[in-house]
Amino acid sequence: MTSWHLQVLRWSLIILLITIWEFSIKYGAIDVYYFSSPSLIFRNFQFWLEEDLIFKHLSVTLSEAGVGFISGLILGITLGFLFAANPRIDAILQPFITIMNAMPRIAFAPLIILWFGFGFLSKVVIVISLVFFVVFFNTYRGFKEINPILLKNAAVLGATRYQILRHIYLPATVSWTFASLRVSVGFAIIAAILGEYIGSSAGIGFLINNAQSNFDATGVMTGLALLTIVVAILDVLLKRIESHFTKWQVVDQSEESKI
């Protein structure tokens, strides 16, 4: 099956499901009050566009996720590197990090809102708390999984510490970090939306929550559809970045182009 055929089949499936949904509403098979309908969602979407709600709220959510993601990334890489390179720090603090990671951090979100308020900052902190651990553990793992023979060989040849850092430690670590990029960006969006659910005055999460409290299924669905589209676009972009940084690995991006 060529990739073109596959695409056609996938889109047909989506259109089929939407059509079934629309007609089920039309002929009363399911209740529009609870499930809304594709045409209502589309109209609501137009309404939000006209009222300039989409750009306003989307930019809030994305900047919360973006700022939190970048901060979590920098923090995760730095600490991951530091922990992996210093056995003593590692030995003392590793159990704490593991416990903190095991804790359901989402449950801390209300507390974070309490500490940092209803605004931008609290969402960023929630995002960081999720992204940091993904990046931290991947960076740490990348460092620890370096084949010891590579280090030994470099040492025998006479490589300096800087050369070993630059040609072995850094690329090994960064490639693991980038391999986890898609997961952590997904987490960032989830965390921002979640923060907005709990307490906020702007953002897509706020819009969805608002619609929900007005028993407006169409509003909730419009928000969800919008998020799905945004995340899908981000995912395609990130897949490109990821495959650029991991092209040396056994399963590379050519897998898809081979189909």
Binding site: N147, I149, N153, L157, I168, P171, A172, W248
Partner: peptide, 17 residues
Amino acid sequence: NRIAVVWQEESLIPWKT
């Protein structure tokens, strides 16, 4: 002396060509 080793294990850097 410059010493070089051909190791028993795989010793190539996987992210370099």
